[in-house]
Amino acid sequence: MEQREYLREAENAAPAAAAQEAVQPAGEAVPCGGKPRKGKNASIFNGRARIFVICMLAYAVVNFAIFYVWMNIDSILLAFKTYNGTTGKQEYYGFSHLFDNFKDFFVNLFTASGTLPYFLRGALYHLTGFLIAYPISLIFSYLIYKKLFLHNFFKVMLYVPSIVSAMVISIMFKTLAENFLPVIFPQLGNAPLSDKAYATPLLVAYSVFFAMPGQLIINTSTMSTVPQELIEYGRLEGITMRKEFMHVVIPLVYPLITVQCLGLFVGLFTAAGPLYAIYAEMAPDYTVTYGYYIFTRVIGRNASEAYYGFTAASNLAIGLISVPIVYLTKWLLERFDPEAEY
């Protein structure tokens, strides 16, 4: 039977369905959600439904078991392995050297020419983006939500960077920084992105500037669910835009802010920024972040299977360090949960 016939019949049956839904929520409706019907239908909606559910989920469960469970377990096990150049295989360390990859990770971190600056640089890119760009992104979303002059044009422009991809934007930025900026600011030299003095500030500026649009669509859509009566009430009371933003909108969309902040903190130590798009494997040492460092040990000309154990151990260690930070952030955000004033 065609879909439209079902729809027509469903519309005819609507009063009956509505009566049924009055005593039973739609999501829990029979035959699958509530109690099974007696008689002929009961067998159909039990045995066949079970088979149907299993068939529908089978592929996804197998896929999940391979690409999530197995991959994560393999990643953990890999952290305790070393590459045997003779056999070409990853083999477990002996018991006395079981934690050598972790030892390498921590030793590398704190030696004189170690990887600590990479961590700090990654955190710098990420935190400046978070501390400066995130509040601005909320303000931008609020201005779009308020439908100020040219809001549709601004909305499209703010959305364009996420459409044309970070890679295209990064290369455009690189071209601009190396060919346009030196003409206007000659003190930057010919290649500021390869200059120790200017490379990091320029990359930070890039991170901040292109993080400003933020998650515009989600932000404005969530803001638009703020009850209009509250906004009207505030307007009648003579509330200013700043007060409306700070004391009504922000407190009401605070759950969204919590989720987004947690998302931002998850990549604190592993963010690679635009480095690979701009430099490929040739990023100068004074721009490198830990995410980029690990990536280039697995992919590209500097990559080798000998690094696999070390990168897996780094990944695991960073994950273990990140989890308390993420949950501490969550706790702090919940603690400072502002109350809407209305």
């Binding site: 999940f64 391979i66 690409f67 999530y68 197995w70 991959m71 994560n72 393999d74 990643s75 890999l78 990853q90 947690l262 998850v266 690990i294 990536f295 697995v298 992919i299 299977e305 690094y307 696999y308 990168t311 897996a312 780094s314 990944n315 695991l316 994950g319 990140s322 989890v323 993420v326």
Partner: peptide
């Protein structure tokens, strides 16, 4: 499981992905 996967920051290393 979906809620767990989407909200808990667990990511396997790239090396494991390649191996599998």
């Amino acid at each position: 499981v979906v809620i767990f996967v989407n909200y808990v920051p667990v990511t396997a290393s790239l090396a494991s992905g390649l191996r599998i």
